[in-house]
């Protein structure tokens, strides 16, 4: 705002409208309004409505009425729910460990100089880019008891017995975790690679002169410098894996014998397929307090570092 305009304002030639736009705080709130509207419409409303549903006996086609914690009470004695809860925790914990480890390995390898570097980096992103439904269907074919390419290789080259991957309770959840890990590694890998590339090479040179071995450089420089990215990636991935629906739904949809049910697929079965939408909402909300605590803990931890 130039001196001329300020002069005009002083003489009262420009209205109060200009002065509001001139002050930063009110202008800031004004500019926030569109975003708040969008968030309210597409995030807050569905979320609050979900909470409301979970305390009603609503069914599809019936608004129902308030029943308090009855839905939650009911689920406590539902063995499939308990199985789903345990599966969700196992599914998230196991895949996160593997995605983290393999993603870090992938980033370290991709950070080296090698021929066709760009092509390989782009190609390794594919599992993340392909729509999950499509890639999961492909995996279902690969796990098929009769036509499985995995079994074919095992049978012909390693002389191992065929495995009915998705058909037995002992292997179905493992199959689910293999596919989730496969799909999730690129996200970890590329995020870590971006983190690695922000570490100045001089730090490694200084460490080499200081006498650090390769492993010591990794422990003392790479890992601590990667920590902020690591925490954020871990956080995002944990949330997404907890709530993962597409992959468990397409690959097994709770089969066999509900052994691969996770909370999201079980909520869908009860709430949409079964029509008990109130109970479905209650199931999917179970993880909310747990996730909130994790998120809050991580965010506070991140801030206190500085």
């Amino acid at each position: 705002m130039g001196a001329a305009v300020r002069g005009l304002e002083a003489r009262g030639l420009m209205g109060p409208r200009v002065r509001i736009l001139d002050r930063e705080a009110p202008l800031g709130y004004l500019l926030l309004v569109p975003l708040l509207l969008l968030l309210g419409l597409f995030l807050a409303y569905p979320f609050l409505f979900g909470i409301w549903l979970s305390v009603t006996n609503a069914q599809i086609g019936d608004n129902g009425h308030f029943v308090g914690a009855a839905n939650y009470q009911y689920e406590r004695s539902d063995t499939v729910f308990i199985q789903s809860f345990a599966n969700t925790i196992t599914y998230t914990a196991v895949t996160t460990v593997f995605k983290l480890g393999l993603g870090l390995l992938m980033a370290l390898l991709l950070n080296q100089v090698f021929p066709a570097q760009r092509f390989v980096r782009a190609a390794l992103l594919l599992p993340w880019i392909i729509p999950s439904v499509l890639s999961t269907l492909a995996w279902r074919w690969m796990f098929d008891p009769t036509f499985s390419v995995v079994n074919w290789v095992a049978l012909h080259y390693l002389h191992l017995p065929s495995v009915n991957w998705l058909g037995t309770t002992s292997t179905a959840l493992v199959s689910l975790m293999i596919v989730n890990t496969w799909r999730g590694i690129p996200f970890y890998g590329i995020s870590f690679l971006a983190g690695l590339q922000t570490i100045p090479t001089e730090l490694y040179e200084a460490a080499r002169v200081d006498g650090a071995t390769r492993f010591q450089q990794f422990r003392q420089i790479t890992l601590p410098m990667l920590r902020p990215i690591l925490v954020v990636v871990l956080l995002l991935s944990t949330i997404l894996t907890f709530g993962d629906f597409t992959l468990p739904y397409v690959l097994t949809n709770c089969a066999p014998y509900n052994s691969t049910c996770v909370l999201s697929t079980w909520a869908f079965q009860i709430g949409v397929n079964g029509g008990y939408i109130g109970i479905g909402a209650a199931i999917s909300l179970v993880l909310f307090p747990l996730l909130s605590i994790i998120v809050a803990g991580v965010l506070i931890g991140l801030r206190s570092r500085d």
Partner: peptide
Amino acid sequence: MPPRDRDIAMVFQSYALYPH
């Protein structure tokens, strides 16, 4: 000989201090 066996120390232009 790798740097660590040369018994030298180096001061870098950017200082290269370990930020963490």
